[in-house]
Design a binder for these strands. Structure first.
Lengths: 168, 168
DNA sequence: CTCAGATACTAGGGCGTGCAAGCAGGTGAG
DNA sequence: CTCACCTGCTTGCACGCCCTAGTATCTGAG
C-alpha cells in the first residue's frame, strides 16, 4: 500500500457522508453496511479465485465437490444440491456440466425416479477437492485479515441476517 | 417461515462442524465466516434486484448513476469510475454501454485527452436514480433485518477487513 | 523530434446467476 | 384408467464479473 493510498479516504465512508447530507439519515448506515458487504465479498472471492484457478476450479464448483464428497454415497440429486447450496437449478446444471467435462463428476440415472439425475463425485474429483481444501484453508480461511474476535462478530451478525431472511 | 424450516439446521453450521471433524480446526471459523458473507451478499443483492428490476436497473448500473450524479459536473472519465467503484475497466464499459442504450448516460469526448471518454449522466438518468434511491432506502437500507447495533458491528468489522486488504 | 513504454478504452470469451420456456416423467382426483 | 397438474432437468437469453488481447493516444528519455 502506498502512502497515497493510505491517506485516501474510504469511498464507502464518503458515500455515507453524502447520504446523511441528502437527508437520508435513516438509510445511511444500512447503505454503508450493504456496500461494505458487497465489497468485502469481492475481496475474499478474488483471494479464493487466485487459489483455485491453478486447480481449474471456481468456488461454485468447489462447493459442489465438497458437498458430494461429504454426502453418504458421494452422489446427490441435482435438485437437492441446489437447495442445500442455495443456488438456482440452472446454476447447478451449468456447474455440473463443467465438472463432468473435467472428469470430476459423473451424471448417473436416479434408481427410482427417471426424471431425476444424480451427480456423483469421481476419484479425480475427490483428489482435486482435497488439494483445493488444503490450499484454501492455508491461504484464505486461516487468516482473513481480521482478528479472531472480529471473525466471531461477523459470523454472529450474518447468522442473524440469514436467519431473519428465512434462510434456515 | 414454516416450522419445518425453523427446525432445519444451518447449512453453514453443518459445514463448520464437518471442518472441525476433519481436523481443520484452525480454518473452520474463517471458512464459516466467508461462506456466511457470500450467502448474506446473495440475500441482500436479491432484495436489491427486486426493487431495481421494475426500474430497469441493476445495482452495478445504479452505482454508476449515483457516482455520476454526485460528481461535480455529472461526468467522469471511465477509468476514474472503475477505480472509485473498484470494478474492472471492462465492467465499466459494458455497464455504460447499457446505460447509454437506455438513455441514462451519454458518452462525451474528454476535453484534453483524446484517448479518454467521459460518461455523463442525463436528465432521465438523474430522475431514474433518484426514484431508485427512494425505493432502495425504504425497502432495503432502512431495514436489513438485523439490529442497529449489529449494523454497526458489521460496518466496523468489514471496514477493518477492507483496510487490511489495502482497499483504501 | 523520435520512439519505446505507459495509459484509456473496446472487443471477445469464459464463468456464474437468474428468468422463462419446454420436455419427460411422476401423481392424484375422479 | 385417465388427464390435468406437479416436478426435475435442460436450454436459450440477459446481465455481471474478469481476463486477454488489440487499437488509439499520450509522455518522456535521449
Amino acid at each position: 500500500m502506498t502512502i497515497g493510498k493510505m491517506l485516501d479516504t474510504d469511498p464507502i465512508g464518503e458515500a455515507h457522508r453524502l447520504w446523511v447530507k441528502h437527508g437520508w439519515t435513516d438509510a445511511a448506515d444500512g447503505m454503508a453496511a450493504v456496500t461494505s458487504l458487497v465489497r468485502a465479498q469481492q475481496i475474499l472471492m478474488q483471494r479464493i479465485d487466485v487459489v483455485l484457478r491453478p486447480l481449474n476450479l471456481t468456488f461454485a464448483r468447489y462447493e459442489i465437490l465438497m458437498l458430494l464428497g461429504f454426502s453418504r454415497n458421494g452422489a446427490l440429486p441435482m435438485t437437492r444440491m441446489g437447495s442445500l447450496l442455495q443456488v438456482h437449478p440452472t446454476s447447478v446444471t451449468s456447474a455440473v456440466d463443467r465438472l463432468e467435462a473435467q472428469g470430476f463428476v459423473a451424471r448417473l440415472p436416479h434408481p427410482t425416479d427417471r426424471r431425476a439425475v444424480l451427480a456423483s463425485i469421481t476419484e479425480p474429483g475427490r483428489s482435486q477437492s482435497a488439494t483445493a481444501t488444503i490450499a484454501l484453508n492455508a491461504q484464505v480461511f486461516e487468516n482473513l485479515g481480521i482478528t479472531d474476535n472480529q471473525v466471531d462478530q461477523l459470523r454472529g451478525v450474518l447468522r442473524s441476517l440469514r436467519a431473519n431472511a428465512g434462510d434456515f
